[in-house]
Computed example of a mutant assay.
Amino acid sequence: MAKALIVFGSTTGNTEGVADDILKILNKNGIPTEVKNAADVSPAGLAEGYDTVIMGCSTWGDEDIELQDDFVDIFDNMEKVGLTGKKVAVFGCGDSSYTHFCGAVDVIEKKAEALGATVIVGSLKIDGDPEASTVEEWAAEVMRMM
C-alpha cells in the first residue's frame, strides 16, 4: 500500500490546519500517512520510505515570491529530499490581493518536477480561510492518483 508524507510550513496556522485535514482524510481512507512540520525536519532523505509526498507552503511577499520561513531550507535543499521517482502534490494558503498569490506552490511544483518527481494533481491554492469541502475534494483527487 502507498505511504504518504505531508510536510508543511505554516506561520498563521492555516497551512498547518490544511495539512492536518489532509492527514485525517488519507488516514480515514486507509492510507498510512505522516505529517511533519518543516520547522522540525531536515531535507536530507526526507522522502525516504514514502511513495507520495504532499507539500504545503504559504507565500509571502509582493515584489518577489517568498516561501514560508520554515519551508525555505527544504526548498533550497530539495535535491537532498529524495523526490526522484516520487509522486508529489502541492498545496498552499495565500491572499489573492498579493501579486504572487500562492506563488510558492508553483515554484515547489516546478522544482520537484525538475528533480524527477511526478506532480500527480493540480495544486490546491487556498485564498483566505480554507473550506473543508475544497480540501476534501482535493485530497480525494490525490488519493485517486496515488
Results as ranks from 00 to 15, higher is better:
Met146Leu: 15
Arg144Asn: 15
Ile126Tyr: 06
Gly116Glu: 02
Gly49Ile: 00
Ile74His: 01
Phe91Asp: 02
Tyr98Val: 14
Leu83Lys: 00
Ala44Phe: 07
Ser123Cys: 12
Arg144His: 14
Glu141Ile: 05
Ile25Val: 11
Val135Asn: 07
Met145Gly: 08
Glu34Asn: 14
Glu113His: 06
Gly49Ser: 03
Lys3Trp: 03
Val35Tyr: 04
Ala4Val: 02
Tyr50Lys: 00
Ile74Ser: 05
Ile25Glu: 06
Glu136Leu: 08
Thr12His: 15
Ala132Asn: 13
Ala89Tyr: 04
Gly85Phe: 03
Leu46Ile: 07
Glu16Arg: 12
Gly17Thr: 02
Val53Trp: 00
Ile65Tyr: 08
Asp127Glu: 07
Glu34Gly: 06
Asn37Val: 03
Ala2Val: 09
His100Glu: 05
Thr59Ser: 06
Pro43Glu: 11
Leu46Cys: 05
Thr59Phe: 15
Ala140Cys: 09
Met1Cys: 06
Ala117Ser: 02
Leu26Glu: 04
Ala2Ile: 04
Met55Phe: 12
Thr84Val: 09
Asp76Ser: 15
Asp69Ala: 14
Phe91Leu: 08
Ala139Tyr: 07
Glu16Phe: 04
Phe101Pro: 03
Asp106Leu: 07
Ala47Gln: 01
Val72Pro: 07
Val7Thr: 06
Thr99Phe: 13
Phe8Glu: 01
Val7Leu: 06
Met143Thr: 10
Val90Tyr: 09
Val119Gly: 08
Lys28Arg: 10
Asp106Tyr: 11
Ala4Glu: 01
Glu137Ala: 15
Glu16Met: 09
Leu26Ile: 06
Thr15Lys: 13
Ile25Met: 05
Ser42Trp: 00
Leu26Ala: 05
Glu141Lys: 14
Asp69Trp: 10
Asp127Cys: 03
Asn37Asp: 15
Ser97Gln: 08
Gly49Met: 00
Lys28Ile: 03
Asp51Glu: 06
Gly116Met: 05
Ala38Thr: 01
Leu46Thr: 00
Asn77Ser: 14
Tyr98Gly: 09
Leu83Ile: 02
Lys28Phe: 08
Thr118Gly: 01
